[in-house]
């Protein structure tokens, strides 16, 4: 392995985790990459973890071959509205969900391959001014749409054939929802963060808002990435894309905050910052399991362990350029790193 292939651990005492390059996927068209994700895909009785890459006008599915190689097997063309993001559906096989739009999401579509004739199909699930969308367990999607006055928070169930079945609405808060997160430990609980920095908790079964709690920072538009409940408290990992540098804690990419849902009081638990000597603000990122990863303004990717708060790996820009995207695979043992030219690098995180 060259120095470029093996990401450096930020300090000697953190060499217990590393990112090791496994493979590189390259779209021959050199189109700009907008997102990357993984999906389980079954064919001929064999279910494999595949990679999905999104460019502005097409989505490609890559199947694994021997020796860490990948082969592009399907490409769905979406020529009318640009692709904004892939929406991972945690327990769904043979289905890719995508959000399309110009400045904000205007459509959510499901992409699939017909089991009858093998043709590629698309199914429109939702249209509107969609502010946030998240794939939930049990084949569901949640989205917030509309204006503040007529905001709609909707849960949509997705069938195996790629159709949207049941629809249920949740009570809208009087604030625009910008992000959602499922609550691990409470199957029927969902949280969302708002444009004026509240954390909203819903009961998914009844649609009730159980509480709306101030996040507690002056920074607007906090984004919730992961939530879990333990010992009667709600732990939430947040990012603050618009935060300004703060003397006391620098500029953490993520923070963990604990809320008491009964009293709406909260306090900071942990900051996830870069180690001394490294700089860069949070651009975008993802949290999965006990790991958080972020692309920074320096063009590097940083990875943190949620329990220790330590930065466990730093992936500097490589010879081809800065990183622009970072996603975890279905498990958090694999990291997908994307660049503007459409290249996607697969790293094992161990």
């Amino acid at each position: 392995l060259t120095a470029e292939q093996l990401a450096v651990a930020p300090s000697d005492n953190l060499r217990d985790r590393s990112l090791q390059l496994a493979s590189k996927l390259k779209n021959p068209s050199s189109s700009c990459a907008v997102d990357v994700s993984t999906v389980w895909w079954e064919s001929a009785g064999c279910t494999e973890l595949c990679i999905v890459t999104a460019c502005e006008t097409f989505i490609s599915l890559w199947k694994p071959l021997a020796s860490n190689q990948w082969r592009k097997v399907y490409t769905w063309h979406l020529t009318e509205i640009p692709v904004i993001q892939i929406v991972p559906l945690p327990d769904v096989c043979n289905l890719v969900c995508v959000a399309l739009g110009d400045l904000e999401i205007g459509e959510i579509r499901l992409l699939l391959c017909s089991s009858e004739d093998g043709s590629l199909k698309q199914s429109l699930v939702k249209t509107g001014n969609i502010k946030a969308v998240l794939g939930l367990t049990n084949r569901k999607l949640v989205s917030s749409s509309g204006t503040l006055q007529d905001q709609q928070i909707e849960i949509i169930s997705v069938s195996e054939a790629g159709r949207s079945n049941e629809r249920q609405t949740l009570m809208p808060p009087e604030e625009t929802i910008l992000a959602f997160a499922e609550v691990e430990g409470f199957r029927d609980a969902l949280v969302g963060t708002t444009a004026v920095n509240s954390l909203v908790v819903w009961n998914l079964k009844t649609g009730q808002i159980l509480n709306k709690m101030p996040v507690g920072y002056s920074y607007p538009a906090s984004i919730c990435h992961r939530a879990y409940s333990d010992s009667g408290l709600l732990f939430v990992v947040l990012s603050h894309p618009h935060a300004k540098e703060n003397e006391s804690c620098g500029n953490p990419a993520f923070r963990m905050r604990v809320f008491n849902p009964k009293t709406a009081r909260s306090t900071g638990v942990m900051f996830f910052s870069l180690p001394p000597g490294h700089s860069g603000r949070y651009l975008e990122g993802e949290v999965k399991g006990v790991s958080a990863a972020a692309v920074l303004t320096s063009g590097a990717i940083a990875v943190w362990d949620l329990f220790s708060g330590q930065c466990t790996a730093l992936l500097p820009p490589n010879a081809d350029g800065n990183w622009s995207l970072v996603r975890w695979s279905v498990t958090d043992s694999c990291l997908l790193a994307g660049q503007k030219d459409g290249s996607v690098y697969v790293y094992h995180y161990s």
């Binding site: 009961n203 009730q208 159980l210 509480n211 009964k262 009293t263 909260s266």
Partner: peptide, 23 residues
């Protein structure tokens, strides 16, 4: 964090808030 920071904690917060919240 202590209970005094966050107020009284309930392990059954989800059920209790579901009973109290408007539906």
């Amino acid at each position: 964090c202590s209970e005094s920071d966050l107020g009284p904690i309930s392990l059954n917060w989800f059920e209790e808030l579901s009973t109290e919240a408007p539906s």
